[in-house]
């Protein structure tokens, strides 16, 4: 579903944020992308979703994200770590706008919005302006907007930051539900316990380079993901 081949990104000023990164996410995968602050996680994600330019190649469902940008975006959804949404719209106006963009039928959007908003506990607030929402509510609204077209590939940047425990649990269920239907999820996180429990595959990035990648169970074995993470990132530092 997602193939990254030798991706690199150098910022203005010379800082190499991502350096020759390659990985593959298969249909049905929940893929955790782990790394220190500034390791290159968000830069990689922004390259996939079309915000940043990059060197190398990224394929979504076999299509090049630069050459077939629109087709790729139609089957993808992205939720940033701090979603800045249109504060001048009400929640329902925002969701209706997103549904218009993905060309979702009236009946289907009503059904999906109602269900997802009730599940995440913001249904009654949908008539209010987004500017009145808390950080967590905005996050939930962004999640509903991302699920509205049942994406084949869901990209999330630190999705659990700002969510209450119940909403985190619901999001995890939603992620599992989406993958059971054959979609893939690629997300970055700092919460290693969540990654260990939720993901079937994991990649660790350090200073822009992939340091370890593989099946979660095989990687961790008897150890915790925290131990593995410290081991590989410290080993990387010692180098």
């Amino acid at each position: 579903m997602l193939v990254i081949k030798n991706m690199s990104k150098t910022y203005q000023g010379g800082k190499k944020a991502v350096d020759g990164l390659s990985l593959m996410v298969k249909p049905g995968d929940i893929y955790g992308f782990i790394g220190h602050n500034g390791a290159g996680k968000t830069t990689t994600i922004k390259g996939i979703v079309g915000i940043h330019d990059f060197e190398g190649e990224i394929l979504v469902n076999g299509m090049d994200v630069r050459k077939n940008s629109l087709e790729c975006k139609k089957i993808m959804a992205y939720i940033p770590d701090n979603p800045d949404l249109y504060e001048y719209l009400t929640g329902i106006q925002y969701l209706n706008f997103i549904a218009d963009i993905y060309e979702i039928s009236r009946e289907l959007r009503e059904e999906r919005i109602k269900k997802e908003a009730e599940d995440l506990g913001i249904y009654s607030a949908l008539g209010d302006l987004i500017s009145t929402y808390s950080h967590g509510m905005k996050q939930k609204l962004a999640i509903i907007g991302a699920l509205i077209h049942e994406p084949k590939l869901l990209i999330l940047d630190e999705p659990f930051v700002g969510l209450d425990p119940e909403a985190s649990l619901i999001l995890k269920e939603k992620m599992h539900g989406l993958c059971e239907k054959g979609s893939s999820i690629f997300f970055s996180t700092h919460v290693l316990e969540v990654a260990q429990k939720l993901c079937n595959r994991i990649a660790v990035i350090s200073k822009g380079k992939l340091v370890v990648e593989g099946d979660t169970k095989e990687l961790t074995k008897a150890k915790s993901l925290e131990d593995v993470f410290m081991e590989v990132t410290h080993h990387d530092k010692a180098d």
């Binding site: 929640g91 329902i92 549904a99 218009d100 963009i101 009503e110 209010d128 500017s131 009145t132």
Partner: peptide, 19 residues
């Protein structure tokens, strides 16, 4: 900001992307 918190879905309208 005023927040009512009493939204009830009354039927949404589907529009073209441009509109």
């Amino acid at each position: 900001n005023e927040a009512g918190g009493n939204y009830r879905m009354k039927g949404l309208s589907a529009k073209s992307v441009r509109r």
